[in-house]
Design a protein around this nucleic acid. Structure first.
Length: 390
DNA sequence: CTGATGATGATTAGTGGC
DNA sequence: GCCACTAATCATCATCAG
């Protein structure tokens, strides 16, 4: 587990200047902005492409991608790893190094729906012949929620939401924005600017005359590609939290869509950090049968949501495990024998110590929660070696 | 104990003037 | 290249009501 050390921490300011200089030398770019790894070194910063469109997008002509997957990482089991794109410096280089040196695919989900979601995905899936879920989701706020058109001021020029996060705007903030809205029709320019800044930060919508509010959990479910009422039954605070921590279903489904033709009889899935089951919902919406899912999730509320969804939509076997730390290599090997191996190992490890909005404990990949990433690596390797023995 | 509420910056990347 | 500036960001914590 110590094979990949982390370079985060230490004298940041000094290293920052050095990195800026190296960055321009080591990374080139295509006309489309995709960063190409030039020298094979994985020790440096891995900047996301601009625009953040990954290797391909639905309805876009795919550009030639120079993507090398080492022999030992090719083919079954396929794996799919996810985390926030804008992690502290060096984190993605470390993650990549631990996952066979595969280059992350950085995608901002704003290219597939009405909300931004900048994420990095490391996987060994083929990238040809991807297909999006249909119908394609609405791309703008007002296409997604037409009823807000009535109250949306012309000077609020937002067309998409920013990242849907785990916490919600307090009433004091929405109230003060309402008060500012009453300062004029339209309000003075500088007031508008302040209001829009807050609306952007908290993804507020205009629900009435001079009245803004946070999105409802049900609306976030819709934006993220989950079925209506997916998280219903939890307290509102917990719905926001579990949704904010989840995948964008359509983005993940687009990447996983290549599995459909490869596994017509369904797949066995090892799902780490399952949460409310974004990966499974993606597979289900793709029409890919899940024969078996071994799900690892520590949060009881998320587990309940996922199991309820499973009972309603699935006929396969679901095995639930509480903690990645308690899933031993031997146990993994037993599952491999029992089920004939896993076709997909999927999961996004905790972003708590990587996310930019964490004020108090953005400690990098070795932070209290984010360090669990190493268990993803350990368990993936356990699956691979067990399947190689067969 | 659960759940809602409000307060709490720093680290990045990008842009544009010089 | 350097610097000021804009902008975004899967969050955490104490506190309070119930």
């Amino acid at each position: 587990m110590n094979s990949c050390s982390n370079s985060f921490g230490g004298t940041k300011k000094i290293r920052l200047l050095e990195d800026r200089k190296k960055k321009r030398k080591q990374y080139g770019g295509t006309a489309h902005g995709n960063q190409i790894f030039l020298d094979g070194s994985h020790d440096e910063h891995m900047p996301p492409p601009n625009p953040m469109v990954g290797f391909s997008l639905p309805n876009y002509r795919q550009l030639p991608v120079d993507r090398k997957i080492p022999k030992k990482a090719i083919g079954r089991p396929f794996f799919y790893y996810e985390n926030v794109a804008q992690a502290p410096r060096g984190v993605w280089a470390t993650i990549s190094r631990c996952l066979y040196g595969i280059q992350p695919e950085y995608v901002d989900s704003k290219h597939l729906c009405a909300a931004a979601r900048k994420r990095g995905y490391i996987h060994n899936l083929p990238i040809e012949n991807r297909a999006p879920l249909l119908p394609l989701p609405p791309m703008t706020i007002l296409e997604a929620f037409p009823r807000y058109k009535k109250w949306w001021p012309s000077w609020d020029t937002r067309t998409q939401f920013n990242c849907l996060r785990t916490s919600v705007a307090c009433q004091q903030l929405t109230g003060s924005i309402g008060a500012l809205a009453r300062t004029g029709n339209p309000p003075p320019r500088n007031i508008q600017k302040d209001m829009i800044k807050q609306c952007k930060e908290y993804n507020l919508v205009w629900i009435g005359k001079n009245k803004v509010a946070a999105l409802e959990p049900e609306e976030i479910e819709y934006l993220l590609g989950f079925p209506k009422d997916h998280t219903r039954g939890l307290a509102s605070t917990n719905r926001h939290k579990s949704l904010g921590n989840s995948f964008h279903v359509d983005t993940v489904a687009y990447h996983l869509s290549v599995l459909k033709g490869m596994f017509p009889n369904g797949v066995n899935v090892l799902s780490l950090f399952t949460g409310i089951g974004g990966g499974e919902v993606a597979l289900h919406r793709l029409g890919i049968n899940m024969r078996t899912v071994v799900s690892v999730e520590i949060d009881k509320a998320s587990k309940r949501i996922f199991r309820d969804w499973w009972d309603q939509t699935q006929t396969g076997t679901l095995i639930e495990i509480d903690d990645v730390k308690s899933l031993t290599d031997d146990q993994v090997a037993t599952y491999v024998t029992t089920f004939g191996g896993f076709d997909l190992v999927i999961g996004g490890s905790p972003c708590n110590n990587l996310a930019g909005c964490n004020r108090s404990s953005r400690h990098g990949l070795e932070g209290k929660q984010s360090v669990l990433f190493h268990h993803y690596v350990r368990i993936l390797n356990a699956v691979k070696s067990a399947m190689a023995r067969k």
